[in-house]
Design a protein around this nucleic acid. Structure first.
Lengths: 229, 229
DNA sequence: TTGTCGGCCGATCGCCGACAA
DNA sequence: TTGTCGGCGATCGGCCGACAA
C-alpha cells in the first residue's frame, strides 16, 4: 500500500511510531478494541501489568480488501530488564519534531453530501481540490473538461470526467463517479481523499463514517465494518 | 427444508436411503467427491478397506444458503462384526418397492432457455406446468391474469405475474420473474422446479447446470460452486 | 463558493404480439 | 406448443443550469 495515501486516509489525528521507537503497550486498551470480545480469566487479569515498555521492530501499512479501510500491523518486542528506554535507529533522529520526515504530498479530504452520494451521479469538487490535486484544466475550452485517472489503495485505477461548468462556474466529477460510489458502497457522511503523488499521479482513498450499525436494507450481502480512529 | 421440494430439486436420479437401512460406505468415492483434495498417506491408504458395511442412523435434508443447491447429511455407524446385514425399522418395510412412501406431489422441472434467462424478463411456462402446478386461472378474464406466490427452499416467498396471452395463446411469467433470475443468479441452462404442495401452495426450487468453471465476468463477488449429482 | 433542486434527454427494462420451428 | 425476435412505452440514470445558503 502506498504509504502517503495510507497516511492521508488515516488522517492527521493518527500517528504511527517508526521502527526503533520505544513505546508502551497497553493490553487493556488492545483488548477493548479487539473485534472479538477478549475475556481474560480473573486470575490472569490480576497478574497482567497495566502497560509494557516495548520497542517497535516492524510496521506494515495495510488496507481491508473489501472496505478499503486502512490499518497498520506493528510488531513490538518487550524491552529487556535494565535496557534503557530510548529510541534507537531512525527513530532517534527526529526526537519529537518530524521535520526530517519525507515531504508531505498535497491531499484533500471531503465528506460526501447527500447530493454527492445519492443524486444524479455527480460530485461537487471544492475549488481547492480541483486546483491543487487534479491535473491542470485547459480553461480555454468551452466547457473546460478532462479525464482524471486516480488509483485507490489497492492500485486499481478509476476514471472520472472532470468538468468546469454551471452558473456560477464550479468543478464537478460526472461520468464515472456514480460507478465509483456504487462499487465502494459509499454513503453520505463517508469521506473521500484525493492525493497528488510525486509524479503528478492522482490517488483516491476512503474514510468511512462511524455508523450506529450496519443497517442492511435489501437482501444484499454486505460486510459490516465497525471502525474508528 | 421441505422434504418434497428437496426431492424434486435433487431429481429422480437421486435416492436417499431411509434411517435403518443397511448400506455400504465407499471411502474412496467419498474422498473423490470432497471439495478439498483428500490426500491419504500411502500407508493408511493401503490399510483402508474398499468399502464398509454401515447402518443409516440419521438423515438431514439441507440446502446451501447462497446457491439453494440441495444436499443431505447422512450419519452412518459401521455394523459390528457378526451383526446381520439387513434393514431394520422403517427401512425393513418397503424392501425395494417404495409404494408405502407418502404420496408424491405434482412437480415440474424446466431448463431455462436464453429467452427465459436473458431477454425482456419473461418466462415461458409450459402448458402442463401452468395447468397442474399453478392455481387455476380464470379464463373468462381478458386477458387471464393472476399472481402466483411460490416459496423457495428457505421458505422465502416470491411473487410472479402469471398471464395467458399472445397469438397463439401461451402461459407466461412476467413481472417478478426478472427479479428472481437476478437474485438467484440464474443463467440459461439452469433448471427451475415448480411443485404443488399438499394445501395447494406453490414451491419453487433450483437445479444449477454443471459449468466448465465459474468464469467471473465483472468485478462482482460471487461464490463459485461446483456441484453435481 | 457549493449544496440541492427540477428539467430533460437518452438508455435500459420489461411487456407485448408476430412468427416459425 | 413454445423459443426467439423486433417494437415500443414506461421507468430510471445521470447531465445540466438555476438558485440560494
Amino acid at each position: 500500500v502506498n504509504a502517503q495515501l495510507w497516511l492521508a486516509c488515516a488522517g492527521s489525528m493518527c500517528t504511527v511510531p517508526p521502527v526503533g521507537a520505544a513505546v508502551y503497550y497497553f493490553p487493556q486498551g488492545h483488548a477493548e478494541q479487539a473485534s472479538a470480545a477478549v475475556d481474560l480469566p480473573a486470575a490472569a487479569a490480576m497478574r497482567l501489568p497495566p502497560f509494557v515498555a516495548c520497542r517497535v521492530v516492524a510496521v506494515r501499512f495495510m488496507a481491508e480488501p473489501l472496505t478499503d479501510e486502512v490499518f497498520a500491523k506493528i510488531r513490538l518486542v518487550p524491552l529487556r530488564p535494565g535496557e534503557p528506554v530510548a529510541d534507537v535507529g531512525d527513530a532517534a533522529a527526529g526526537g519529537g519534531g518530524d521535520d526530517k520526515q519525507q515531504h508531505k504530498p498535497a491531499s484533500f479530504a471531503k465528506t460526501l453530501t447527500q447530493s454527492d452520494a445519492n443524486n444524479g451521479g455527480g460530485f461537487s469538487v471544492p475549488r481547492f481540490c480541483a486546483e491543487t490535486i487534479f491535473p491542470e484544466l485547459d480553461y480555454r475550452a468551452e466547457p473546460p473538461v478532462q479525464s482524471v485517472y486516480a488509483r485507490d489503495v489497492h492500485g486499481v485505477e478509476w476514471t472520472f470526467r472532470h468538468i468546469y461548468r454551471g452558473t456560477p462556474r464550479r468543478h464537478l466529477l460526472t461520468t464515472g463517479w456514480s460507478n465509483f460510489v456504487n462499487k465502494k458502497k459509499l454513503l453520505a457522511g463517508d469521506s473521500i481523499v484525493f492525493l497528488r503523488g510525486e509524479n503528478g499521479r492522482v490517488h483516491v482513498g476512503l474514510r468511512r463514517a462511524k455508523r450506529a450499525f450496519c443497517v442492511g436494507g435489501g437482501g444484499d450481502e454486505g460486510a459490516a465494518s465497525l471502525s474508528g480512529w
